[in-house]
């Protein structure tokens, strides 16, 4: 906020106060926090509603139908209107046509691509020739970790002998994974706090710079 204008300092000041109000919850719940929380919910809801109107309703209904005369856009509009019939006891069944269309299209596109992405490509990435390199060693370790982790969830046989050893390795592999996830989560949460602290620091510096 170097060389900030009066307007930027004013709005920056509002943001700084709101940030402090949110942080006040760390001490205990209080009315200032509640007010700011509700303002946030209201502002985001209002913003999102208007954004959807301008990016969806205007672009996909008003402009194509009324300005360009592309009347085939009436088909999705009718399907959209039918969705509202769920509120009627008599004509509620009409909403099922829209839902059937939506679910049919979604599953038709989603299922094959998800099988390809989450199963086939992942299998291909996991099972590959082991090369005598550092990367090859990493792949081999990952492969052993996956097999052992899967064996931990095999409950049809008691975890003794070879299965006991592999499930033990599996649980350690899972713990390493959870630990990595926890560490990265801490990093993310600290980054959120740090960014707000940096903002407050920069704002106070620019405010003092403008005043003195």
């Amino acid at each position: 906020m170097e060389g900030a204008t009066t307007g930027e300092l004013f709005w920056g000041g509002i943001a700084a106060l709101v940030t402090l109000a949110i942080f006040s919850f760390l001490y205990k719940d209080n009315p200032v926090f509640k007010v700011v929380e509700r303002i946030w919910v209201g502002v985001t809801t209002g913003y999102w509603t208007m954004l959807l109107y301008h990016t969806s309703f205007t672009d996909k209904v008003i402009t194509p139908i009324f300005e360009r005369g592309q009347y085939f856009y009436l088909f999705p509009v009718i399907l959209g209107i039918l969705m509202w019939f769920r509120l009627s006891k008599t004509y509620g069944f009409l909403a099922r046509y829209s839902l059937a269309f939506y679910i049919g299209i979604s599953t038709g596109i989603f299922i094959p691509l998800t099988i390809k992405t989450a199963i086939l490509y992942q299998l291909h990435g996991t099972i590959r020739p082991i090369e005598p390199t550092w990367t090859g060693l990493m792949f081999a370790l990952a492969f052993i970790g996956i097999i052992c982790s899967l064996s931990y969830f095999f409950f049809s046989k008691e975890h003794k002998g070879l299965l006991g050893v592999s499930s033990k390795i599996g649980i350690y592999t899972l713990m390493i994974g959870f630990g990595t996830g926890f560490g990265l989560t801490v990093m993310g949460r600290v980054a959120l706090l740090g960014q707000r602290v940096s903002f407050l620091h920069d704002y106070i510096a620019s405010l003092l710079g403008a005043l003195f």
Partner: peptide, 17 residues
């Protein structure tokens, strides 16, 4: 991605996606 998400996406790196 955010730190919270990162560990979920490393498998896609290994598979070349």
């Amino acid at each position: 991605v955010t730190g919270v998400m990162a560990s979920d996406y490393y498998p896609y790196l290994q598979s070349g996606q």
